[in-house]
Design a protein around this nucleic acid. Structure first.
Length: 884
RNA sequence: GGAGGAUUAGCUCAGCGGGAGAGCGCCUGCCUUACAAGCAGGAUGUCACAAGUUCAAUCCUUGUAUCCUCCA
């Protein structure tokens, strides 16, 4: 057999793009025809077509890719559906910003042209996103790619809307909604972000209508007083019980408003009296409804005061009007005092403009019955969150849910499938575009001008992407999906709603396992953001370190549910590991020269062979458990320590003796096992380091097909080889003991020294060390390594070191610092004595002996023996050293 | 105001009631022909604080402090 040449160093750019194209061309991302067993499917959280992917996407998609590749290799029919989201407000804002630069508004283009232009932006960003996902190595099935506004999904949206309407779960109503004056649209409750801001609290006098004095109310927004319809006090507030029902004069107007009682009033806040402005405050809205009060809207859609206000204030922006009103109140002697007051102010989650509560006609989904089904799904464990603690958050949201405002006054999105007959006023809600009014049969119809909230399409994602409402083969085969991976910031927007819609339309949960990842932050724990400039671009990481390094590093750091704090340097870890894999492979492939691969029978395994196969096997188990529990960091760590610490540091090192100095037969045998382990390792590591393992796998003489579709190594109970594990652990301990002596004494590696090794009679690894004498000698730099189990060797003048069950004597008469060594040994004795004291106190404690598990007692006893031995040996060694 | 999370080595973080761990960084010595992106050895900890439960607490319970997030 010929050696296989590998480039001198690991350079991911040489093969990552090529391999991705090969996979794609061979169609290896889609579900296999011959796959068997339960399906495994995942839908990708669709990125917004506004932007480019950030580290959060990299984390999210890396984990999905790992899961998908893992299950694909286990042989199950596996599907990962990619796609993008039209992101209504966000995308529209991008286009409007572009227009603004050209001095245009969207109205200048008109709806149709504006949407055409938005599609262009969508196409451009979509292409960027797709190429980014490919760069990352995501093995999603591009044949199944979807966009929330493509034809099929638009049908699903209509179906959902009309079905809910028919079930009485969608209604149109006048309602106080969150209104963003800048975006010019209503927002759902969840789209409002609150921020504590400094403001003023104005204490204003409202005189009694009968002239018998006045009361004082506190407000942060005096300009809304024109919409006041009452002043409320707490019904049990003793101070004000007597005045409930009295009328007040509303200053600056000639209006009369009553004092009412309502228990929502906070008696501690301000004067304990609040003005009620139903059209401009959510709490007041609820209060107004409870008390049958009129809602007086005082604002125009552009945020200026309207005709419900006195002439003087009309058509002035609210903020300016406030100053004017305050001045007039002051002039009129109505202001008692003005205090500084910080309070929470709602902002638009897209443009961060201050939200205005605004009374308008909007469409809503009645959420209560949907939420109940979604809660049941959790109670029945149809869905499980990883980590579990998110289940509380989910339940709480479901229990306190409010109706969902789904209409948006935007152009980019799904038009609401509602038409109005201009002749007879008939409202038509239809799956198909109607041509005439079913009531008056005239065709003078006008479609509702609003579009639906973006989330109204994404909440159907797990089944709309599979063809719903058609009963497609995909839907049959891959629904419900298996696992959803998402960050916690969209549990409410998206995850919860998907569960509701799926329960409502398909009668089951859309996925079973919900993996909630942390957020990716910078090394100081701050969110990565454009304004801070602290973001890391995944493409830059890939450029510097490779996609494998990025994926592996993220996986290694993704402890369940924890935020991931990283900087550019963090990715060195994955990059070094990949380099290690590359070089280990290079070495092994070099050694193929002139060799024949042979089948080594299990019964011919040496102890070291059994050990490495045992380690490989237990790593399979560790990974299986880690994947089942979505403990990605555990999986990454198992792989890392197996390949690097076990395989490279010990097994390959041991094999070198045979590869370099063995007979042809020994060489064949050694390289065959090495290639076998290497081949298994590539399959084992493929989900986590996809490109490098494929590149290497193709070059292995013992490979079959592509690793992406190879079978995943399976844990085998019969191949644990625990005794080999214990033996090798002992051997490693002996090696470390001698190395430590040499290192502490600063003995140059090239200086070979005689070592006498004295095992106790029951030391388990004496035979192994004897068999591996050449290996051990080379690791410890011994000129000769004498196993002296009958205490015949003279150790005069040798430097002693001891371990559990053995002593080593290193012949280093020259060049040692006797005093320093004595100091070190004394420190060890002190530590052992401290540990011994702890053990003794346990063992002299009758309660411990009585209550503790037998193994625990035994363990303490063996610890005692160990510490005693250490103290004894070290004392002897100090004596010996003192005589030097 | 309510809920959740975090607090372990210089940094980022694992950790399963019974002798404190990893990666990076640091110190020392080595280019031992796979890898200096490497090898070997080493140092570094009141496991935030205080009680409680337990034979035994970094781990369980309660409280406190600090920080973060979400909800209202």
């Amino acid at each position: 057999m010929k050696a296989v040449e590998l480039a001198k160093s690991y350079n991911p750019k040489d093969f990552e793009d090529r391999i991705y194209q090969e996979w794609k061309e061979k169609g290896e991302f889609g579900p296999k025809k011959d796959a068997a067993g339960e399906h495994f499917s995942v839908v990708m959280p669709p990125p917004n077509v506004t932007g480019i992917l950030h580290m959060g996407h990299a984390l999210n998609n890396s984990l999905q890719d790992i899961i998908i590749r893992y299950y694909r290799m286990t042989g199950r029919p596996t599907l990962w559906v990619p796609g993008t989201d039209h992101a209504g407000i966000a995308t529209q804002n991008v286009v409007e910003r572009q227009l603004k630069k050209e001095g245009l508004r969207r109205q200048d283009l008109g709806r149709e042209k504006f949407i055409e232009r938005t599609w262009l932006v969508k196409e451009k960003h979509h292409d960027i996103i797709k190429s980014q996902l490919e760069k990352m190595g995501c093995s999603c099935d591009w044949e199944h790619e979807r966009f929330t506004m493509d034809e099929g999904l638009s049908r699903a949206v209509r179906e959902a809307f009309v079905t809910l309407y028919e079930r009485g779960l969608i209604y149109k109503g006048k309602y106080l909604v969150n209104y963003c004056p800048k975006c010019g649209t209503a927002l759902s409750d969840d789209e409002v972000e609150y921020e504590n801001m400094p403001g003023k609290l104005y204490h204003v006098r409202y005189p009694y209508a009968d002239g018998s004095g006045y009361i004082t109310v506190a407000t942060t927004r005096p300009e809304t007083m024109f919409g006041d319809v009452a002043v409320a006090v707490h019904p049990e507030d003793e101070r004000y019980k007597a005045i409930v029902g009295k009328l007040l004069c509303l200053p600056l107007t000639d209006k009369r408003i009553p004092i009412i009682a309502d228990s929502f009033v906070d008696r501690e806040f301000g004067t304990g009296m609040v003005k009620i402005t139903p059209a401009h405050d959510p709490n007041d809205w609820e209060c107004g409804r409870r008390n049958n009060l009129e809602a007086v809207n005082i604002l125009n859609p552009d945020g200026t005061l309207n005709d419900n206000c006195p002439q003087k204030y009309r058509n002035i922006q609210a903020v300016e009007a406030r100053e004017l009103v305050v001045k007039d109140l002051e002039d009129g002697g109505y202001i008692v005092k003005i205090e500084d007051h910080a309070h929470d102010v709602g902002h638009c989650y897209r443009c961060h403009t201050v939200i205005e509560p605004y009374l308008s006609d909007q469409w809503f989904v009645r959420m209560k019955s949907l939420a109940e089904k979604a809660l049941d799904a959790l109670k029945k464990s149809d869905i499980v969150f990883y980590p579990r603690r998110w289940e509380n958050t989910y339940s709480h949201w479901m229990e306190t849910i409010r109706d969902w405002c789904i209409s948006r006054q935007l152009w980019w999105g799904h038009r609401i499938p509602v038409w109005y007959c201009k002749d007879c006023g008939q409202v038509i809600v239809s799956r198909e575009d109607p041509t005439c009014c079913p009531k008056c049969h005239k065709s003078n119809l006008e479609q509702d001008s609003d579009v639906l909230d973006t989330w109204f399409s994404s909440w159907l994602w797990p089944f709309s992407t599979l063809g719903w409402p058609e009963e497609t083969e995909d839907l049959e085969k891959f629904f419900p999906t298996s696992t959803l991976v998402s960050a916690y910031d969209i549990i409410f927007f998206w995850i919860s709603r998907m569960i509701m819609s799926s329960e409502e339309f398909l009668g089951k949960a859309p996925f079973r396992d919900i993996v909630i990842t942390g957020l990716v932050r910078d090394i100081q724990g701050r969110k990565m953001s454009k304004s801070l400039g602290n973001g890391i671009d995944p493409l830059e990481v890939i450029d510097q370190f490779g996609a494998d390094a990025m994926k592996f590093t993220l996986c290694y750091m993704a402890a369940q549910g924890q935020d991931v704090l990283i900087d550019m340097n963090s990715f060195k870890m994955g990059s070094r590991f990949a380099n290690k894999i590359w070089n280990a492979t290079r070495f092994l492939l070099m050694n193929l020269e002139g060799r024949n691969l042979v089948k080594v029978d299990e019964k011919d395994y040496s102890v070291m062979d059994r050990w490495i196969y045992g380690q490989l096997n237990s790593t399979c188990l560790a990974i299986q458990k880690a994947m089942e529990g979505y403990r990605f960091n555990d999986a990454a760590q198992s792989i890392y320590s197996f390949f690097w610490n076990d395989f490279c540091d010990w097994y390959i090192e041991e094999s070198k003796q045979k590869l370099l100095h063995g007979s042809d037969e020994e060489k064949d045998r050694a390289i065959s096992i090495l290639m076998d382990i290497l081949e298994s390792s590539m399959r084992l590591m493929h989900p986590f380091l996809s490109f490098i393992t494929e590149e290497i796998y193709q070059k292995l003489p013992n490979h079959t097909g592509d690793v992406i579709v190879a079978s995943y190594p399976v844990f085998d109970e019969k191949r644990c080889y625990e005794e080999a594990h214990a033996l090798v652990a002992s051997l490693q301990e002996v090696v470390r003991t001698v190395r430590s002596v040499r290192s502490n004494l600063q003995i140059a590696p090239e200086k070979k020294l005689k070592v006498v090794f004295r095992p106790s009679k029951d030391f388990n690894a004496t035979a192994l060390i004897s068999d591996e004498l050449v290996f051990v000698s080379s690791l410890v730099g011994a000129s000769s390594f004498v196993i002296d189990d009958d205490m015949k060797e003279s150790v005069d003048g040798a430097f002693p070191a001891n371990g559990l069950g053995y002593e080593c004597f290193v012949f280093v008469r020259d060049a040692i610092d006797v005093d320093a060594e004595i100091g070190r040994l004394k420190a060890e004795i002190a530590k052992a004595e401290k540990n011994l004291a702890g053990v003794e106190s346990k063992l002299s404690n009758e309660a411990f002996l009585k209550n503790a598990k037998a193994e625990a007692v035994e363990k303490e006893k063996s610890k005692r023996a160990e510490f005693l031995e250490k103290i004894k040996k070290n004392s002897e060694h100090i004596k010996l050293l003192s005589s030097f």
